[in-house]
Design a protein around this nucleic acid. Structure first.
Length: 616
RNA sequence: GGGGUGGUAGUUAAGUUGGUUAUAACGCUGGCCUGUCACGCCGGAGGCCGCGGGUUCGAGUCCCGUCCACCCCGCCA
């Protein structure tokens, strides 16, 4: 007798009603022969054993149809409750778990269901057992309209849905394919620690207090960056890992606090070798999962991307580009434009078809959007779609000819709207880039049926951090400067620190950065110079990265690598726009787990062991 | 840290200028039904209108605060 005792009563039924001996007898004697969707007309007449969940039941009195669901999908099973041993079929409810045996039967003439994979057959049940009852679920598994907070709380129910099962199956297949690709090229899968060292450069770390070393902390890795470089120093040459990474920053639709990277590093290579290897992987994946032979991958420099799209990860599915108006509006006497140009800023514009008829209200909304991105305002010119007559928010300042000239310079046509931003270069770019994407979505100008890849290369080496009043690494502090800039960096003999370029590259797909990498610094004096540029004292360098600088001195091969955002990759392949849809147990935008209620308070005893006292 | 959208039955939503007992569909539940597949038919139960204040004779509705979810900015090398 197997112990079977649950001492609480659920609404509507009691678990004790189930006979555990019958249950165990059934699953001991009757092994599952098929998954639901394995079955088709060729199995006609076979006796099969299925196990799964009740998706729906249709009780017609002396005949009960049940859609049985398992990992593969759904098959219709038919009960006659008058038959011996089948009376309990009257009690079946949604999400009950059952085991059954029956005969595969072609459905009667005219009764097939073409929308179902198994719609030509049904299983006539001759024996079954309820293995587990279920409370009425808080939502129907197949209901796609249910709010996400409820689905996150009952994630294990939502995971039963076809949508999430398909996504997780896809994820499995993609990672398998990635592993096969890299394995075939001689890459070695090496695991690196999750408990590691805090390197407060870049994202905020998740910290783990040490019990044994009082007052000291581990950090969860933001990426295995230094570790994989150490593996190169150790001679492992070609490394990869599907690595879990952690960043304690605010979340977005495509950002989770813990996520997976396809982390890759290679020795004795230059940038083009890494790009070639990456392109091979893209093409392999897109062939396998999209059926596209030799998917094209464009390339442009960071500078070009900013000039043309105002963004370092442009979505090329949107056919709108930024146009520089400096030459056209220079000395126009319009203060907003003149001031921006005088302050070394920019005046740029986009032309958008279909905006010529935008109402004042809509234009005001766009102005608000522009202000949210830091611009002081938004200048618009719109063109009547019939007459082509121009109206503008700045018609007081420009005569008709000048407006016409601006309109034409931007490449606008009859019925288009032109939007102009004059501000600091970065703000101008950011605003128009956001506007470009917003309008493309609003006006359905985005060709969602194709994926557009783009390499963005030649990133600046450094970026200025206004808050901290210092230079920070644009990619990360291990990124090598471009060949021409190496000596300048070492000698400090550069005129403009902004102009130093990095051997860094991002792979962009549909406006998502799906992979990013760089050739690394492999000489310790260069690495030292880099840390110096970042304003780190000798002491800081030693305590944070001393081990790494030292390691560089023991024979470091030239090396570089790339890391893919695995979740974003799957997201694109699954055609969803939320990263939560491709992660089994995701967190909310406040980084909590609604199902398990994590994070949560802990016992004082636990805190004591960790030598931690909470403020207040 | 800032901005936006939403929160009404188990679910999804409606709820008018503040005014009787807060609606509907689905789900749940009892009954009937041999070809359903969004089964159908007849009946029933089900509400702290997110939470806390306030205004008012009267608040789901107006005001203030707060919590939660989602989207965006900052942030995310």
């Amino acid at each position: 007798m197997v112990p079977f005792h649950i001492d609480f009563v659920h609404v509507g039924f009691h678990y004790g009603e189930l006979n555990i001996e019958d249950i165990m007898a059934f699953i001991t004697e009757q092994k599952r022969t098929h998954y639901c969707t394995d079955l088709n007309i060729s199995n006609k007449g076979e006796e099969v054993v299925l196990m799964g969940w009740i998706e729906t039941r249709r009780d017609l009195g002396s005949m009960i149809f049940v859609d049985l669901r398992d990992r593969t999908g759904i098959a219709q099973v038919v009960f006659d409750p008058k038959l011996e041993g089948l009376a309990d079929s009257k009690d079946l409810r949604n999400e009950f778990v059952v085991a059954l045996s029956g005969i595969v039967n072609p459905r009667p003439e005219g009764m097939t269901n073409k929308s179902m994979k198994t719609g030509e057959i049904e299983i006539i049940v001759n024996k079954f057992e309820i293995l587990s009852k279920a409370q009425t679920p808080p939502f129907k598994i197949s209901d796609e309209k249910v709010g996400e907070n409820l689905r996150l709380k009952y994630r294990y129910l939502d995971l039963r849905s076809k949508r999430l099962q398909d996504n997780l199956k896809l994820r499995h297949k993609v990672t398998s394919s990635v592993r096969n690709y890299l394995d075939a090229q001689g890459f070695l899968d090496v695991e690196t620690p999750i408990l590691y060292k805090s390197t407060p450069e870049g994202a905020r770390d998740y910290l783990v207090p040490s019990r044994i070393s009082e007052g000291e902390f581990y950090a969860l890795p933001q990426s295995p960056q230094t570790l994989k470089q150490l593996l190169m120093i150790a001679g492992y040459d070609k490394y990869y890992q599907i690595a879990r990474c952690f960043r304690d920053e605010d979340l977005r639709a495509d950002r989770q606090p813990e996520f997976s990277q396809i982390d890759i590093e290679m020795s004795f290579v230059d940038q083009s070798d890494i790009q070639k290897m990456t392109e091979g992987l893209v093409k392999t994946l897109w062939k396998e999962f999209r059926g596209i032979e030799d998917v094209p991958i464009a390339s442009m420099t960071y500078h070009e991307a900013m000039e043309r799209f105002g963004c370092d990860k442009p979505d090329l599915r949107v056919d709108i580009e930024l146009v520089d108006l400096a030459n056209v509006v220079k000395g126009s006497g319009f203060k907003v434009f003149d001031d921006a140009l005088a302050a070394d800023g920019a005046v740029k514009a986009i032309a958008v078809s279909g905006c010529g008829e935008y109402s004042r209200g809509k234009l005001d909304k766009l102005t608000t959007l522009a202000k949210h991105h830091g611009a002081k305002g938004l200048v618009w010119i719109k063109s009547n779609k019939d007459s082509g007559e121009l109206t503008s928010s700045v018609s007081k300042f420009f005569n008709a000819e000048k407006l016409e000239e601006i309109f034409n310079t931007v490449g606008a046509k009859k019925g288009d709207g032109v939007f102009i931003v004059a501000d600091e270069y970065a703000k101008t770019c950011a605003t128009l880039s956001a506007l470009r994407l917003h309008l493309a979505k609003e006006l359905n100008l985005l060709n969602a049926s194709e994926d557009r890849f783009l390499w963005v290369t030649d990133f600046p080496l450094l970026d200025y951090d206004e808050d901290e009043d210092r230079w920070i690494a644009m990619h990360h502090p291990f990124t090598a400067p471009s060949d021409g800039d190496m000596d300048k960096m070492l000698s400090g003999s550069f005129n403009d620190i902004r102009k130093l370029k990095a051997k860094a590259y991002d792979l962009v797909c549909n406006g998502h950065e799906i992979a990013g990498g760089s050739v690394r610094i492999h000489r310790d004096e260069v690495q030292q110079a880099m840390f110096n540029l970042l304003g780190m004292s000798a002491e800081e360098i030693k305590s944070r990265f001393g081990f790494f600088i030292e390691a560089l001195q023991y024979g470091t091969p030239p090396h570089g690598g790339i890391a893919w955002g695995l979740d974003r990759l799957i997201m694109i392949l699954a055609s969803t726009d939320a990263i939560r849809d491709v992660i089994a147990f995701p967190k909310t935008t406040k980084a909590t787990d609604l199902m398990a209620s994590a994070p949560s308070p802990v016992d004082t005893k636990q805190l004591d062991e960790l030598h931690i006292t909470l403020k207040s």
